[in-house]
Amino acid sequence: MDATKVFRLENDVLAFRFTATLSDRAGESPRERLVDPAHLELWFRVAGLDVVGLDAADLRSAVDFREVVHRVGSAFATGLTPAVTDLAALNRVAAGGRATLVLDEKGCAAWSLENSSLADALSVIAQDAIRVLGACDTVPVRLCEGPGCAGLFVDGSRGRNRRWCSMNTCGNRIKKARLAAK
């Protein structure tokens, strides 16, 4: 199975890439990409978080956590205060793993999961979300304005006026629609 055909992987933020496993979430027919434990394992593998042996309960836990990350990110992106329960869940998951960041002989950083566990992998995602969302006053988190998308992204553009999670997908759709309208 080719992960690039199954998942949207262009987001630089690991936690937001994870939330993109449900695409077109604000549209008429959201597309769930984590359809079974094997797809979750594939996503973890391409994210550099090898976790195997997952079951349906693990998939439910991961999907539930993904939605926590999206709700917290969306709250920050829209200037709202996240729900206390979502913040508690995010912080609990971040503290629940035993993953460590390691440096290899080539100078590349990678996460080492102590037991290749779901808790370790989700902890890495939670820590990434906290790192990014905790800097939202200096680098704003935004919701994609693409039709039906509502994907999260960090707006690092010079004018802080980026509108789409990805120019390759949502931005391209908008440009094509404008051209077709002319």
Rank of each mutant, 00 (worst) to 15 (best):
V93I: 15
W164L: 01
A181Y: 00
A38D: 11
R33S: 07
R98A: 15
C144V: 02
L49N: 12
K175S: 12
S166G: 05
R8A: 06
G156E: 08
A99G: 11
A119R: 10
L152W: 12
E41C: 12
M167E: 12
R71L: 02
S112F: 15
I174Y: 00
D86S: 09
G79Q: 08
T19F: 04
L103T: 15
N11E: 11
V154I: 06
A15V: 04
G171I: 01
C165G: 01
F153W: 05
V154M: 11
L42V: 01
R158N: 06
V84S: 05
R60L: 05
A15G: 11
L49K: 13
D36W: 10
L101K: 12
A56P: 03
N161M: 10
L143S: 00
F76M: 15
G134I: 10
N91C: 03
L87T: 02
K176C: 01
D2S: 04
A89E: 14
L9W: 03
A3G: 06
V154R: 11
G96L: 07
R60A: 12
V124I: 11
S166H: 00
E28V: 07
V63L: 04
D137H: 00
N11A: 13
E28F: 10
E67N: 15
L133S: 03
C149Q: 02
A180D: 00
G48T: 12
L113S: 06
A150N: 05
R131E: 07
N91R: 03
E41L: 08
C144S: 03
V69M: 11
A26F: 00
A94R: 13
L87V: 05
H70E: 12
D50W: 04
G134M: 09
G148L: 04
S157L: 01
N115Q: 11
L103S: 13
S116E: 12
T85F: 01
Q127N: 10
D120A: 07
F7G: 04
I125D: 10
L179A: 11
